[in-house]
Each structure stands twice: as structure tokens, then as C-alpha cells.
Design a protein around this nucleic acid. Structure first.
Lengths: 342, 342
DNA sequence: AAAATCAATGTAAGCGCTTACATGGCGATT
DNA sequence: AATCGCCATGTAAGCGCTTACATTGATTTT
């Protein structure tokens, strides 16, 4: 017995397969990666050996040798937010079509954690990375460039950014909604938003509201702002906080549909009628917006399409390595019963 | 110039850092992994070199050499289902406390895809794996055992399974709900469920309903079953299908809260009153259950706790490598307005 | 003062794979 | 029949790290 191919204790390696099949490691490797280079009879022997040993290739060794992982990483703020989950789902589906695996990490909206996760993904040899929102330390972009890892940023659109973006114009989308709200006579405005710090989606949307107010000649002070985390209960709590202020706003514009639904529920619980006593708007247009009672006025965002486009873009970037243009995803206003004239 | 530590083109390696710092690669490695073994002055030199070069360790090389990844994998059916997202979130948080990274994949409820993902995770050197539900080809469990990768199964509880489980008793939980429904006079039952094929949560719950009916002397035929995917709209469509049948059921028991909310909305849209014309129940008790109108009768499942316990169990398994016992997570009935006596 | 001990660092052998290059065998070409 | 070319396979050099073991110099022990 010249070669040792028992599998005592150890998990089988490619060399074990080669031994059992009576071929070289190179041939086994070829069977796995480019089977057409190997003649039928040999391939069969190798496949039998693989099955018999229950062999599974060691990805780390492969990545080390081949310098390619066929893996793309994504970092989202949280998995609990349906829109990210949804966008990511189609992102993954599109990647799958190209035989690319997705690695997901969530940063809990912490820039430090995100930075750490980016380093982790790069360490793991991600061929490309999807990030949400542009706002982060420029050093990170430098690091990524130095490491030669292409990046796509989603959920925002900015053709002038240093990296390609796939998303919508948060400023304009929110401004359009605010324009509508104001055109319906609302003057005492309020918003429940995620903390705009380090979150360019949130800050852009806030800017959108202010811009609309300015055009209508409404002073900035007429907008009350409450920050809230993501969640139905959080939306309700934020609404209570808003109502504790002296002047009750006539409308509350929420950063997303989930907050909005929570605000509506809390308002009703407090004996207020929506939209008669107070109007409420959301953002995203997830299913819950339709079945809320009253149904939610919101901004429709095609998350699935965004995920898909981001995947295509990133794959192009990884394969072609040449610059790609940002892609604008159009949003639209969806006016439903939760918003009424004042 | 004896050592070469320019960074032209290539991404910097540990050897580059060693060159720049004027130490051996072993010392650099120690600085990174067990800094207390290195004297202050040397460490400083190395850290400077790391910063200057923008060095990031190659995870794959590290895993290959160290035979350990500090990574745990999880495969969930879909990220779009809030309960998995939520359970996974606390799973991840708990892992983080032990310095372990989480790798997530989603199988879209396909057993084939899941099998592939399991192989991928093993290939990547996951130190342990979290799976949802017990039902899968025994070969997979064999494979995992052979590869020496510990597994924990969540969302079900079965102390007799070959692998430790962390979850609740789907049969009993659903039976308790059905008992209550039947005790309130319902006889013409119906359910909207995920396909029970290859999904032991769904099939166990179905069994629970049947068991309750049997005890009450209600023939099996009194239960109409409609299968539906996850989603509000899907719940609505399933309800329509249910109503097309000759005898209208007095209650529809849904596999989860999302389906239930969809069913309620559709019923109301069709001019039926819930619960006067038809009662509806859910499962999971996510926030939406509370704010639904009418509020949803459902089964409360502590998903967060489940995720956390699963993480602890898996970490123990990875570190101690000795058998661990399954953990039972208790559920409870939450009766709200969507269920009334007949 | 020589010997023993110890902490800090260096040396070098892999980890399991891929792949450029070398080799050998066989049919086609002349 | 000698030559060429090509295809299937083998040989072996890394990929970037970790770590057992060896080495060094300083400190303590006798």
C-alpha cells in the first residue's frame, strides 16, 4: 500500500480522493472545476471516490490557491427591516443566477460595527461588496480601493459619488410627498425618523421636507422631529412624544411604513381619528401599507428591482473591473386614506 | 535593500508587514493573535507597519493554517419572514458576545438548495451550523457527523432527535389553540398553512389540529386546508379560495400572523365581519398581531429567546464537543378579538 | 562565575488546494 | 515509418497564514 487513503479521524482531502481513485491531485481538481478537461472514464473513478469518502472541498484552501471566491458580501443595517430583507432576497437570487454566493452581515446601524464587518468581508475574500447608504469614513473607501474590492452602494442615488450607486433620490422622493402634504393645507408638520446621524437616507429625506416647507414659505420651526428606532411599538411611542408638545401637528410624516402603522395604531388608541384629527404618511409601500386602516399614504419604492439591479451592477464590476454608472430607481407617490386635507 | 516591502499592485501580506517592521512573520502573527506574547516596543513597530500598509489578514489563509474559523453558519428558509429575521438577530448578538461571526444563507424552503448550502457552509469551515426544522435527508446528518460539524436545530423541540433542538412543541402549541377554538363552539374549521411537505413545523401543527378535532369527536373532513406561501397578499388569496367552497368555515386558523392579517383584510374587503361572520387566528404573535383590527388571537412564540438559547447551545457544542440536551421554549395562547364564540 | 531558567523572537514545515509546465501516448500527416 | 500535434494526465511550486520547535540573550539560581 503506497498511498494512504483511509479516512481515520481526519476529514477527507483532495489527496485522499486522488489516492482512492488512483489519479493525481491535479486530475481530481480538474474534475471538480472543469470536468470537460477530463476523460469520461477517469471522471467516473474520481466521482466514485468523492462519494465514497464523503469528500467536500475545503473552500479556504481553494480560495487561497485560486485567489477568487465567487462570493459577494452585503452589509445591511438590520435584517429585521422588511425592506432590506426583501431587497437582499432578490439581490441574492440574481447573484445565484451567476453562481455567486452571498455573505450577509448586519451592522445594527453602527458605523463602527459596519467598518469591522467590511474588514471581515474583505478578509474573507469577498470579490465585491454591497453597502447601504453613502455616508461613511472616507478611509473605508480608500481601504476598499487599496484592497481592490469593488463596491456598490444601494438605497441612495448619487451619480457624483466615488462609487456606483443603485437607488432612488431620497431628497426628491420625500420632497414630493411633502409638497403633496403641504398642498393639502397642512402647516403644522411633524416627522418620526431614524436618527439622521450617519444615515444619509434619513438626512436626505429630512432635507426634502425642509425644502418643500421653504418653497411654501413655512418656517423651519413648524416641523417637530422625533427620532425612533425601527418597529411598530417604537412608532407608537414616538407619536405619544409628539402629542405631548403644546401644538398638535396636523400631519406626521414617518420614515417608513412600520413606524407609520405604529403611529396610526397609537393615535387610534388615544382616541384620535386618522386622518380627521391627524394625518399620517409612511415610506416604502410594503404590504402592510395597503391593509392598514386607514390605508397608508406612502412612497412606493421598488426594493426588489433595486436589489436585482445592484446585483447585476456588482457582478459587472467584479468581472469587467471597469467603471460602471449609477442606476436611478424611480419612486412614486401612493396617496391613500391616511392623508386628508386640513 | 534586502527585503521588499513596497506595495505595488499586490495587496499587502503578513510578510510585507514583517519586512516593514523588521521582524519575522511569526512575530507579526503573534501580534495579531496573542499580543501579550509580544513585547510592547515590537508590537508598536508592527502596528505601525500594519497601519502604513493598510494590511488586512487573509482569512482564508488563516483558516487553512489554524483549522478554525470562529464562524458559525445558519440556514433559514427565508429572510423575508420576520420571525426568522428576529430569531437570527438575537442568535447573532449572542454569537457576537463570544467573538463568533455568523454566516447566513437562505434556502427558500427548498430542501435541495438547503443541502447545497449546508455543503457550502461546511466547505467554508463553519465550526457549527444552525438549521430550522428536523426534516431532511438522513444522509445530510451523516455527512455533517462525518465532517465533524456540530448542528443545532431550532423552531422545533424533540428530545429524541439525533441532534439537539431548541424550540417549541408545534403539535401541542397548535393543539392548544384548536382546543380553545373548538371549545368556543366552532365545528366547521379551516386552515391556511405553508406546504407541510418537508416542513415539520407545518405538518406538526396540522397534526395538532386533527388531534384536537378527534378529541372533540369532529370528523377529519370538517377541516378545509389551503396551502399558501408567506405574505399578506397570499393570505388574502388563500381566504378567497376557502370561501369558494360550498360550506363557509366559521374559523380560519392560519400558519402565521402575516397570513392571518392578510385573511382578515380580505374578509373585510369582501364585506365579512371578523369575528362575527368568521373568526381568524394566527401564529407567532409578532407586533402586527396587536395592531391588527380586530386584534389577532395567536400563539406567542419567544423567537428572540429561542435564537439566544440556540446560540449558547451551539457555542457549547463547538467548544466542549460533548453532547448537549435539547431546550424547550414555552409558547402561550394569546386570545384577542379576532376569535369569538360561534 | 557557571549553570539553569525564561521570555522574546526566529526558522521552517505544513494547511488543502490550483495551475503553469512537463510528460507521455496516440492518431494524423507526410 | 518517421514526424508532428494534441489531448489527458502528472509534477510540483506556490497561495498567506499558524505554530512546534530552535535560538538568543537576559535574569536568576547555585
Amino acid at each position: 500500500m503506497t498511498t494512504d487513503h483511509n479516512n481515520m479521524g481526519r476529514t477527507p482531502t483532495l489527496a485522499d480522493v486522488a489516492g482512492l481513485a488512483g489519479v493525481s491531485t491535479a486530475t481530481v481538481s480538474r474534475c471538480l472545476n472543469s470536468p470537460d478537461q477530463v476523460v469520461e472514464r477517469t471522471r467516473k473513478k474520481v466521482e466514485d471516490a468523492v462519494l465514497k469518502l464523503g469528500y467536500a472541498p475545503n473552500f479556504n484552501a481553494r480560495a487561497l490557491a485560486a485567489k477568487r471566491t465567487n462570493t459577494i458580501g452585503a452589509i445591511i443595517p438590520t435584517m429585521e427591516n422588511a425592506i432590506f430583507a426583501r431587497g437582499l432576497q432578490s439581490f441574492q437570487e440574481e447573484l445565484g443566477r451567476s453562481g455567486v454566493t452571498l455573505l450577509v452581515a448586519s451592522s445594527s446601524y453602527s458605523t463602527d460595527l459596519e467598518e469591522e464587518q467590511i474588514r471581515t468581508l474583505v478578509s474573507r475574500g469577498a470579490d465585491g461588496i454591497l453597502l447601504i447608504g453613502l455616508h461613511r469614513d472616507p478611509k473605508i473607501y480608500e481601504f476598499l480601493k487599496r484592497q481592490n474590492v469593488p463596491v456598490v452602494v444601494a438605497w441612495v442615488f448619487d451619480p457624483n459619488a466615488k462609487v456606483p450607486t443603485v437607488g432612488f433620490d431620497n431628497f426628491s422622493a420625500m420632497k414630493a410627498l411633502a409638497d403633496r402634504v403641504i398642498s393639502m393645507g397642512h402647516r403644522r408638520l411633524s416627522t418620526i425618523t431614524a436618527s439622521p446621524q450617519g444615515n444619509d437616507r434619513a438626512s436626505e429625506r429630512l432635507r426634502g421636507i425642509y425644502a418643500s416647507m421653504m418653497e411654501a414659505g413655512i418656517p423651519k420651526t413648524e416641523l417637530s422631529i422625533v427620532e425612533a428606532e425601527y418597529g411598530i411599538d417604537e412608532g407608537g411611542a414616538a407619536l405619544e412624544q409628539l402629542l405631548r408638545q403644546t401644538v398638535r401637528p396636523s400631519v406626521v410624516m414617518c420614515g417608513n411604513d412600520v413606524l407609520a402603522v405604529g403611529a396610526i395604531a397609537k393615535a387610534q388608541e388615544l382616541g384620535l381619528s386618522v386622518p380627521n384629527d391627524i394625518s399620517v404618511t409612511g415610506f416604502d409601500d410594503i404590504e402592510i401599507a395597503k391593509i392598514s386602516s386607514p390605508a397608508l399614504t406612502t412612497v412606493h419604492v421598488p426594493h426588489r428591482r433595486m436589489g436585482k439591479e445592484a446585483a447585476k451592477l456588482l457582478i459587472n464590476l467584479v468581472n469587467a473591473a471597469k467603471k460602471q454608472n449609477s442606476i436611478l430607481i424611480e419612486t412614486s407617490l401612493v396617496v391613500r386614506a391616511s392623508l386628508s386635507s386640513v
